[in-house]
């Protein structure tokens, strides 16, 4: 009897939550509708913007791809994101291991840990101007520089995550491997790195989302170099869209599409990654 009560579906809440989805879908619905319309169909009332187009045509998308140099921007975004994530897993992972395993015994490593983690509070706005100078002087005011900066910016949070996770991996394994004569380096890649798989997923998701959607870093580092990431292209071509909102929305949708597809495929990992990343 008691169990039945607790299993009863709460219909009022279910219905409210379904109705609430309108707040999520309405802006996206509007974007899709406008992206498929022709400027001549945009009358000055609500229906003009929100009614279905008279015929569904992909011409706006084709034009938007041309205007914003879509494939180049997409390529840059993909390249920067993938390389940053791979390097983050490799470098932040092993840094987390070296620092995490040493800071119990060594004050120096503890200091290094707090030094890097406290970097989380440094806002980009304060580093922005000196970094523009610095990357220009070093000749890396380009994609390479942007990747290096991301590796530094996300080091604090990733280090925190990796060292936190390592606390749950017992030392006994490493001690046994050491007795067998394995070097620390070999042991890390053979034993520890594979064991940190759940944390790699979290780090990859958090880093990828942050890098993919970031505007400020590429804007100040690569601004004016004709190199665009997907979000940066939207900003830089804003003037070319003019009042042709249909073209602009087609471009916005193109910019949102890759991440939406990615989300549809890896929804579980993404939600799990964001949840566990923030809670720790």
């Amino acid at each position: 009897m008691k169990e039945k009560v607790s299993e009863r579906v709460n219909w009022p809440v279910t219905i409210l939550l379904i109705l609430g989805c309108v707040t999520i879908f309405f802006p996206l619905y509007m974007a899709v509708i406008i992206a498929f319309k022709q400027p001549s169909e945009m009358t000055n009332d609500v229906a003009g913007a929100l009614a279905f187009p008279s015929h569904w045509s992909l011409s706006n998308f084709a034009q938007a791809m041309e205007v914003t140099d879509f494939w180049h921007s997409l390529g840059n975004s993909l390249l920067i994101t993938v390389i940053t994530v791979v390097l983050a897993l490799l470098i932040h992972g092993i840094a987390g291991y070296a620092i995490g395993r040493s800071m119990g015994e060594s004050k120096g490593y503890k200091l290094v840990y707090y030094y890097i983690v406290s970097g989380m509070f440094v806002p980009f706005a304060i580093l922005m101007m000196p970094l523009v100078k610095q990357t220009a002087q070093m000749g890396i005011a380009n994609r390479v520089g942007v990747v290096i900066l991301y590796l530094v910016f996300y080091m604090p949070i990733n280090l925190l995550l990796y060292t936190g996770y390592l606390k749950n991996i017992p030392m006994a394994l490493e001690e046994a491997a050491n007795v067998d004569g394995a070097t620390t380096w070999y042991m890390y890649w053979q034993i520890i790195f594979p064991m940190m798989k759940p944390m790699h997923a979290t780090v990859a998701v958090l880093t990828a989302l942050a890098v993919w959607n970031d505007v400020m870093t590429p804007l100040v580092i690569m601004g004016g170099t004709e190199m665009n990431t997907l979000p940066l292209a939207q900003l830089n071509f804003q003037t070319q869209f003019g009042t042709n909102y249909n073209l602009a929305f087609a471009s916005y949708l193109l910019a949102l599409l890759p991440i939406l597809i990615f989300y549809l495929i890896c929804q579980k990992q993404i939600i799990g990654g964001v949840a566990s990343g923030a809670v720790k």
Binding site: I24, N213, P231, Q238, Y252, I259
Partner: peptide, 21 residues
């Protein structure tokens, strides 16, 4: 899954869409 969608979208593009709204 639906309520989480806004989190993955780029804030610049989202703001452009809202600007029209």
């Amino acid at each position: 899954g639906i309520y989480f969608i806004p989190n993955v979208l780029g804030s610049l593009v989202v703001a452009y869409i809202f600007s029209f709204l």
